[in-house]
Simulated assay, not measured.
Amino acid sequence: MDAALLHTVADGVATVVISHPAKRNAMTAAMWRALPELLPGLAADPAVRVLVLTGAGPTFCAGADISSLAGDEDPQALAVAAEEALAAFPKPTIAAIRGFCVGGGSQLAAACDLRFAEEGASFGVTPARLGIVYPASSTRRLAGLVGPAMAKYLLFSAELIDAEHALRAGFLNELLPAGQLVKRVADFSRVLAGRSQLTQAAAKEFADGRTDRDAYWTAQAAGSGDTAEGVAAFLERRTPSFTWTAAGSAAGTTAG
């Protein structure tokens, strides 16, 4: 099968699959370029409320396929552009991880909001094996997840850690027994798809360090009707029907 990013949309969830089985889903230059091109359309689609990033078969992503690069291409620039596009996606994102999540794979997983993995997964940040300076933005994102000491451990050593270690370090949100990852991610995605996109979009910006959007989100909340609907649904013991969408707001283009 050719190397590609595949995607489907069903029941409010966009699933993006890293597919390059011949090289453990290593990202080619074309795949790095394709991700920032794919995401804006999914962000603007009102049918999409959650995005799941996963790998084809038993591996998430084993890094970058260096052999696919043209002589004048900068693999780090391609990876950072894809990572930043994923981090800026205005709706909740989940990395669903099996097998190897190494190098550029860990970079992509860290750019997602949440990371769920299956037992047996392995994680590593490996530029020290190649004498590469890991990007500043990627280093800060990693340190924000696992703390400076653990980020240094991973970057200094380039050693792989198992899923249990990644969970203890704070890289993973949940670790699932073998065979349960797909169901758990699907179930949790449905939970997220039923919650207020207004709450999620504001929380994503604030948690990611935006400090200039308080007035914007106050205005969005005042005009959305979501709060009134949420309270009414709670009192009436029914499922709320929230109407604010990230696709229809400025958050879809300015979040970061």
Rank of each mutant, 00 (worst) to 15 (best):
228 A>Q: 11
174 E>K: 04
219 A>P: 03
193 A>G: 10
214 D>R: 11
166 A>Q: 04
213 R>M: 14
211 T>A: 11
206 F>C: 02
168 R>H: 09
167 L>P: 08
234 F>S: 10
176 L>H: 14
185 V>Y: 03
215 A>R: 15
237 R>G: 09
181 L>K: 02
229 E>I: 04
184 R>E: 15
203 A>G: 08
169 A>W: 06
171 F>Q: 03
233 A>H: 06
187 D>N: 07
221 A>R: 13
181 L>G: 01
239 T>M: 13
177 P>T: 01
207 A>N: 09
202 A>L: 09
228 A>C: 00
219 A>H: 11
206 F>A: 06
195 R>Y: 13
233 A>F: 05
236 E>R: 11
235 L>P: 00
187 D>W: 06
167 L>G: 02
201 A>K: 01
195 R>E: 15
199 T>R: 14
193 A>Y: 08
174 E>V: 12
181 L>Y: 03
174 E>W: 00
236 E>G: 11
173 N>R: 09
175 L>D: 03
167 L>W: 08
210 R>K: 09
195 R>V: 11
217 W>F: 15
201 A>T: 12
167 L>D: 05
193 A>F: 09
230 G>L: 12
167 L>N: 05
216 Y>A: 10
173 N>K: 04
174 E>M: 04
166 A>W: 05
237 R>V: 08
186 A>K: 13
177 P>V: 01
218 T>F: 12
186 A>R: 14
177 P>C: 00
209 G>A: 08
207 A>Y: 06
206 F>H: 04
227 T>Y: 15
209 G>R: 10
232 A>F: 09
171 F>Y: 12
192 L>F: 05
203 A>Y: 07
176 L>N: 04
174 E>P: 00
223 G>A: 12
172 L>I: 03
166 A>T: 02
232 A>K: 14
235 L>H: 03
225 G>V: 08
180 Q>C: 13
166 A>S: 06
191 V>G: 00
184 R>T: 11
233 A>C: 10
209 G>E: 12
199 T>F: 13
216 Y>M: 14
190 R>D: 13
183 K>I: 03
178 A>K: 14
214 D>I: 10
233 A>K: 05
230 G>Y: 07
196 S>T: 04
180 Q>R: 15
